[in-house]
Amino acid sequence: MAAPAASLQKVTEASSADTFLKGLWEENPVFVMLLGMCPVLAVTNSVINALAIGLASTFVLLLSSTIVSLAQKLIPKQVRIASYILIIASFVTVTEYLLQALSYEIHKALGAFIALIVVNCMILGRAEAFASRNSVGKAALDALGMGAGFTLACLSLGSVRELLGNGSLAGIPVFGPNFEPWIIMILPPGAFFVLGLWLLLFNWLRERREAQVE
């Protein structure tokens, strides 16, 4: 595994802006690292749901990365994964209560996927690969960048799926009453189609840029 090691090397020398921005583009958790596929595929059937799962994941990622970074000296290496999961699970439960208190409807729409943020490998991955080796400030910036990249990816899927599958954006009809919705787009297969097309676009853009550099 030469690539992650190389990027880790780069990360340690990166400036704050790079720490934040790499989550959006270069190391986007969804489009580049293909992490957290379960919520990305399952609950991005509308813009509102995509935004809610993106923000909830970002909130959990930010808090758990900060705590993991703060406690890196206190947690023995042997029990670090168990400790990270405990920390992440606590913040997920906190998020679930807060969301339920804020909006009963959104909580109902997201169902079990809020609780499943616990097993989103993006969050455990950032705790292990970044937060536990960097200062609090950097860990928080990294978490914000990764969270923003994740939210952006969810929104990219959610807006396309809602537009084609329901003829609306964030609940507002776009195409008028004569539009026949492309229902498969808001069903599970649509998630794979749309994700595949976004990955195609992302990889094509990256290859083109790399070719230009050479």
Binding site: I75, L86, S90, T93, V94, Y97
Partner: peptide, 25 residues
């Protein structure tokens, strides 16, 4: 001790959140 410490802090956090959000929920 590390695990128990995290566990106790998590427990306190969860109970506080539960009590805090229960009326709104």
């Amino acid at each position: 001790m590390a695990m128990a410490g995290i566990g106790i802090l998590s427990g306190i956090l969860l109970v506080a959140t539960y009590i805090g959000t229960l009326p709104a929920i």
